[in-house]
């Protein structure tokens, strides 16, 4: 089975509200699939010595597009996410996939590789965000959750703060690794 722990930096910042996370992930899916595809189209012409520069340029291009679209058509969300949309440029998962796959495969395949990698990332981030929002704020997508939203639940403020993301991420990795090793043991 294949797994990667890349681009976790953004988990800290935006996963305390499910809606913010979802928008961030859509932005990432767009950026990752298209930049991987573009890198792949240009792979025959790009000199190896400057390929990283070219990749960064392409990624930055798509991220700026996302940023501008959000600013123009969804200003509230744009101000919620603040600088983190721009920081997708430095998200290691985007460059990682461009380097590992886009660089050496045809455009169509590269597009889908990027798309599904970003989708996997989205899946994990949404799990983390769901737990953080419910435990930390008693809401889900801004709607009050029974019990957790009530007076009997003492909200775990730490979950909304950046350290909460570290705890959640560690737990998620722990659970997924355990499932995976259990599977491998059976296969043997």
């Amino acid at each position: 089975m294949f797994k990667q722990v890349l681009g976790i930096c953004s988990t800290l910042a935006v996963t305390n509200l499910v809606l913010n996370t979802a928008v961030m992930c859509v932005a990432l899916i767009f950026t990752l699939s298209l930049s991987s595809c573009t890198v792949s189209i240009l792979r025959k012409f790009t000199p190896r010595s400057i390929r990283m520069m070219v990749e960064t340029l392409i990624i930055a291009f798509y991220v700026i597009i996302v940023d501008v679209v959000l600013k123009a058509y969804w200003p509230e969300m744009s101000s919620n996410l603040g600088p983190y949309v721009g920081l997708i440029i430095t998200n290691c998962i985007v460059m990682g996939r461009c380097e590992a796959y886009g660089n050496s495969n045809p455009p169509g395949k590269a597009f889908w590789d990027g798309f599904f990698n970003a989708l996997g990332y989205t899946f994990i981030l949404l799990i983390i965000a769901t737990f953080r929002e419910i435990l930390g704020m008693g809401t889900f997508l801004g709607l009050s959750v029974p019990y957790f939203g009530g007076p009997h639940w003492d909200k775990w403020i730490i979950m909304v703060m950046p350290p909460g993301a570290f705890f959640m991420l560690a737990i998620v990795i722990w659970i997924f690794r355990s499932i995976q090793t259990a599977g491998e043991d059976k296969a043997k």
Partner: peptide, 29 residues
């Protein structure tokens, strides 16, 4: 000299697109 020219052209191309796009939405922003 190829990498330099290549990078230059690519940057010019993508920058033009971004600038055009920003101009188009600037008023709205």
């Amino acid at each position: 000299w190829f990498p330099i020219v290549y990078m230059f052209c690519l940057t010019a191309f993508f920058s033009t697109l971004v600038i055009g796009f920003t101009q188009a939405t600037g008023e709205r922003v």
